[in-house]
């Protein structure tokens, strides 16, 4: 298994080579992060995620001279991705600022002990659309750290570095994002998830 330190030194070598104009080295970096970035963009902006990921890699390459090769690539790349997605959402005129909305239907619910398999549930097109819509309705400022933490598994310290925000703020944004997602998906979760 590759140790984080080895991975870092390998990526540093690739960065130095890419900076000096080695196409293969940059191609390897793209291969390492392409799925992560496409997934992040898909969850952040929906359609056009592949084009966005490509634009992010181009921005990353243009900014390589400013990048300290001894540091990990992911935070720098995700910072570019975060700003890029915010720009796209602003251009599309989709809200990126938080809003408050509470849903409290006060239903009594019977709880089952085991929660259902999400991957099986996601086979339903209706539920896929519901998750997409729910994500689109969460303000981008909450959505981005939520994806970074839950999907990409980036630790709080790194998210705080990427978003240039204090850890407390990042945690609060993720908590709110979770709550909003749950509220948006409540009906589907109750019916399809069998919590009702």
């Amino acid at each position: 298994m590759i140790q984080p330190q080895e991975l870092l030194s390998d990526q540093s070598r690739l960065i130095r080579l890419a900076r000096s104009g080695n196409e293969d080295a940059f191609g390897k970096i793209v291969n390492i992060y392409r799925n992560k970035l496409t997934g992040y963009c898909h969850r952040m902006i929906g359609a056009g995620s592949e084009d966005s990921a490509q634009e992010i890699f181009i921005k990353f390459y243009l900014a390589l001279d400013r990048f300290d090769a001894s540091k990990p690539v992911a935070p720098f790349l995700f910072r570019i991705a975060h700003n890029h997605c915010l720009d796209i959402l602003k251009k599309k005129n989709i809200h990126t600022m938080p809003f408050e909305k509470d849903t409290d239907d006060g239903q009594e619910i019977q709880i089952k002990d085991e929660r259902p398999n999400a991957e099986e549930l996601m086979q339903k097109a209706e539920l896929q659309n519901a998750v997409k819509d729910a994500m689109a309705s969460i303000p981008a400022l909450y959505r981005s750290p939520l994806i970074m933490w839950h999907v990409e598994g980036i630790p709080y310290e790194e998210i705080s570095e990427i978003l240039e925000l204090p850890i407390g703020t990042v945690k609060a944004q993720i908590h709110r994002g979770r709550k909003m997602l749950q509220q948006k998906l409540m009906d589907f979760v109750l019916i399809d998830g069998g919590l009702e």
Partner: peptide, 18 residues
């Protein structure tokens, strides 16, 4: 449980490969 399942759904959201 609803929170856990919502997050599971977010992770399981299908994303096409590049």
């Amino acid at each position: 449980k609803a929170l856990q399942l919502s997050l599971d759904l977010l992770v399981a959201m299908p994303v096409s490969e590049p």
